[in-house]
Amino acid sequence: MLVVDKDTFEPEVLKAEGIVFVDFFGDGCVPCQALLPHVEKFAEEYSDKIKFTKLNTTKARRLAISQKILGLPVMAIYKNGEKVEELVKDDATPEKIEEMIKRYAF
């Protein structure tokens, strides 16, 4: 999984061709930490079809706000630089995350 920051988010996500998964997480976010093993497993399983990245919003607040990330955790799918789907807070369950990934892993 590629760790992106405020300097690499644009080239790696917003200017990337194809499908990019972004795990928006924060320091001290317990649900984010609980989801990480699942997300890493999905990254291994689907990395041939989707690029997996993660962004620490604690270190990139302005970027998170610009992407309309107002609560955590947020799992988002970007297609050719545009956010096309996201799961927020209680909707970000391992089952729903995998369902969302499968919709774009073709």
Rank of each mutant, 00 (worst) to 15 (best):
R62D: 15
A92M: 07
F21V: 07
G81N: 11
A64N: 15
K49F: 00
P37S: 04
E40W: 07
V20M: 04
V4G: 13
E95L: 06
A34N: 14
A60N: 14
F24Q: 11
F9G: 04
K96G: 06
I101E: 11
A60V: 15
K49Y: 00
K41N: 09
K6I: 06
D90L: 13
P73A: 05
P94Q: 03
I97G: 07
A92H: 08
E82L: 06
D27F: 09
Y78P: 02
L72N: 11
K6P: 05
P37H: 03
V20A: 04
P37F: 01
T53D: 06
F52D: 11
K15V: 05
G81I: 07
I77S: 04
F24A: 12
E95P: 01
V84W: 13
S66D: 11
D5H: 02
K79C: 09
I69V: 14
L14E: 15
E45Y: 03
A105E: 13
F21G: 09
I77M: 03
A92N: 14
V13W: 03
P11H: 09
V39M: 02
D91F: 04
G81L: 04
I97E: 13
A34G: 13
R61F: 10
R103K: 12
I50C: 04
V3C: 07
I101P: 01
G26D: 13
E98P: 00
F9P: 00
E95T: 12
F25L: 08
F24R: 08
P73R: 01
I97D: 15
K102V: 02
P94F: 00
E10L: 04
F9R: 02
G18P: 00
V22C: 05
E17H: 06
T93C: 05
E95Q: 15
L2H: 09
Y78C: 03
F25R: 09
I69F: 06
I65M: 10
G26P: 01
E12V: 14
F42M: 08
D27R: 10
V3K: 12
I69L: 06
V88H: 05
G81Y: 09
E45W: 03
K59S: 06
P94H: 01
L36D: 11
V84N: 12
V3A: 15
K6V: 08
V3F: 08
V84A: 12
K102E: 09
D48Y: 00
I69G: 12
P11T: 13
L35Y: 01
N80M: 06
M100H: 15
Y104L: 08
C32I: 11
E85M: 00
E82H: 08
Q33W: 06
I101C: 06
